[in-house]
């Protein structure tokens, strides 16, 4: 059971790192004062409008659309694919998955492919466009590589080396009960899980935090509402 114990430890550490790290970051952002309103205008004049603006940015990337359409496409492929894949993965952690998770199994497989396509495009862009290459740090390639490996090992299991899903579910369900159940020993599965755990653990201290940061980004999240007495002119 040594392998099971190690995997359990890795998953628990990763999940705790994610929860603690994310909470600390969010509390830090929320607590840091934002004395001056810094909305990039034109901006909504009320709080609700500003929240909607942030929501739109998170879901549809409108600023990126305005900036660079091929990049928007690559980013959208990746994030949409990732969302589908994550939804599909719910069935591994929920014993009796709800109907919508079951319904998402097919689209989830497609998601894996979209996500990989997005990553490949992002990687090509980073290496081929001189402008982007020049601003890339080694860690930028590192994240791409890590995501490619996680996605690649996942796709490998979907299409090639099928893994023992029932065994995996039993292992994960066991964790909730603090019970060690044997884990299928496929190398692809082990690699997939260890790499994903690394990604999860590092998320709060990396640029992958950006979605959460966007919620606090003053140029998008603050309303343009500070001027007093707005009603009539002249």
């Amino acid at each position: 059971m040594a392998a099971e114990l190690a995997m359990a430890a890795i998953l628990v550490v990763a999940a705790s790192a994610l929860l603690v790290g994310l909470t600390l970051r969010i509390v830090l952002y929320a607590r840091t004062p934002a004395p001056l309103p810094l909305a990039t205008t034109p901006a909504p004049t009320g709080r609700v409008g500003a929240a909607l603006r942030v929501g739109r940015e998170i879901v549809l990337f409108p600023s990126l659309w305005g900036a660079d359409k091929p990049l928007w496409l690559a980013a959208m492929l990746f994030h949409l694919g990732l969302a589908l894949v994550l939804a599909r993965h719910l069935r591994y952690v929920i014993e009796i998955p709800p109907a919508w998770v079951v319904a998402l199994q097919g689209p989830g497989q497609l998601g894996g492919i979209l996500m990989m396509a997005g990553l490949v495009l992002l990687g090509l862009r980073r290496t081929l466009i001189r402008r982007v290459r020049k601003i890339s740090r080694p860690t930028d390639y590192g994240w791409l590589l890590l995501l490619l490996l996680i996605g690649g090992s996942g796709l490998a299991m979907t299409y090639r080396w099928h893994t023992d899903i029932i065994g995996l579910k039993a292992f994960l369900a066991g964790l909730w009960r603090l019970d060690l159940v044997p884990l299928p020993g496929d190398p692809a599965l082990i690699a997939h899980m260890v790499l994903a755990a690394a990604l999860i653990a590092l998320l709060p201290v990396s640029k992958l935090l950006h979605g959460f940061a966007l919620v606090f980004s003053p140029s998008r999240a603050s309303p343009d509402s500070t001027r007093l007495g707005e009603r009539r002119h002249g």
Partner: peptide
């Protein structure tokens, strides 16, 4: 400054190096 200005903290953290701004 980091302790007093959320914008600075968030902006320094949030860049993904996508380069969308590079030619703007």
């Amino acid at each position: 400054l980091l302790a007093g200005n959320r914008a600075l903290r968030v902006y320094l953290d949030a860049c993904v190096g996508c380069g969308a701004c590079a030619d703007k």
